[in-house]
């Protein structure tokens, strides 16, 4: 994710965190931070679908698995930064808040915005993942060999 030499790595990472976050979590953090930047809506929140693809045998030819709902939105701050929000599901507020966050992350306030919005969302996602992984690990089979009866 980071340190790969990809100039877009940081932006890609925060956009991915915003996309996968729970809409309610984004709304709560956004309200708490109280951001209300002056902006112009370039593309009003729009609900659509993305065709999710898989590969035959996990490694072979791509095939269409089915669609998922996605909402997108674009904004431009009064200071000029353009933000794009692409989020899973049908949350128009979620997409708008993601686009505004993306724009704010390109301003001088990036560190504060990261601390207020992106980092808590990343931590929440990590916590959900760790809990599930720990429950899965508890169901891992420990095999043991029975002592054979014959000499």
């Amino acid at each position: 994710m980071d340190g790969s030499g990809d100039p877009n790595a940081a932006r890609k990472a925060w956009l991915s965190v915003l996309a996968k976050a729970q809409a309610a979590d984004v709304a709560a953090l956004w309200a708490e931070a109280g951001y209300a930047p002056d902006h112009e809506v370039l593309r009003a929140p729009e609900i659509g679908a993305v065709m999710v693809r898989g590969r035959a045998g996990a490694v072979g030819a791509p095939f269409n698995l089915g669609e998922m709902t996605v909402t997108r939105c674009s904004v431009r701050l009064a200071s000029g930064e353009v933000g794009h929000g692409y989020v899973q599901g049908r949350g128009k507020d979620h997409a708008m808040q993601a686009a505004l966050t993306d724009a704010l992350m390109q301003t001088a306030d990036a560190v504060a915005v990261e601390n207020a919005i992106v980092t808590p969302l990343r931590n929440a996602a990590e916590a959900r993942r760790t809990t599930r992984a720990a429950k899965a690990a508890a169901t891992k089979v420990d095999f043991f060999t029975m002592v054979r009866g014959e000499d």
């Binding site: 679908a49 993305v50 693809r53 996990a58 269409n64 899965a136």
Partner: peptide, 20 residues
Amino acid sequence: TLPRFGGSEPVDTEAMACDR
């Protein structure tokens, strides 16, 4: 009724966070 925004990269199931 939904506009199609595009098609994804093929999912990487090797990187799946496995419940099972």
